[in-house]
């Protein structure tokens, strides 16, 4: 399975950016916590605790904001600049998550932007890379 090369039409961004950002953030946080609890995500929470994260899906016009503590992730409701922000289009995020594309490749190609604490960025990237999806139901969707 390959993620098709498509950019969401501007209309999507216009509509989505007016919706409250909390529901998608809430979904993402729920998912992350599930993964931590099932020990799929081998997160050393002490490295992430107290840090604020933002994921901007550019073509969808949405921004997901969350933070972490020793116990897990939660939605970040404070409108302060995040410690770490990743931005890319939806298809490129999908490629990264499915391991079709390496984040460094997308970064070299300027399809992924990283702002804020670069070391925290590396921790997050390496954390996601180290997940062994082959032991989970998601495994069969992964490219590598």
């Amino acid at each position: 399975m390959q993620v098709p090369d498509l950019v969401l039409p501007p209309l999507v961004a216009r509509i989505a950016s007016r919706l409250p950002a909390t529901p998608p953030s809430w979904l993402l946080v729920g998912l992350l916590n599930q993964l931590v609890r099932r020990q799929v995500l081998p997160a050393d929470m002490s490295l992430l605790a107290g840090r604020r994260f933002e994921v901007r899906v550019l073509d969808a016009g949405i921004s997901l904001r969350f933070t972490a503590d020793e116990a897990g992730f939660r939605v970040d409701t404070i409108a302060e600049t995040a410690d770490l922000c990743f931005s890319a289009n939806a298809a490129d995020f999908a490629r990264m998550m499915l391991r079709e594309e390496d984040p460094d490749t997308l970064f070299f190609n300027r399809k992924l932007a990283i702002e804020g604490d670069t070391e925290l960025g590396l921790i997050v990237k390496n954390l996601l890379d180290s997940v062994d999806w082959s032991n989970t139901p998601v495994g069969r969707f992964m490219a590598a």
């Binding site: 390496d102 490749t105 590598a144």
Partner: peptide, 10 residues
């Protein structure tokens, strides 16, 4: 070694 599994595979 700093790259992701996608790079290694490709």
């Amino acid at each position: 070694r700093q790259r992701s599994p996608a790079y290694t595979a490709q």
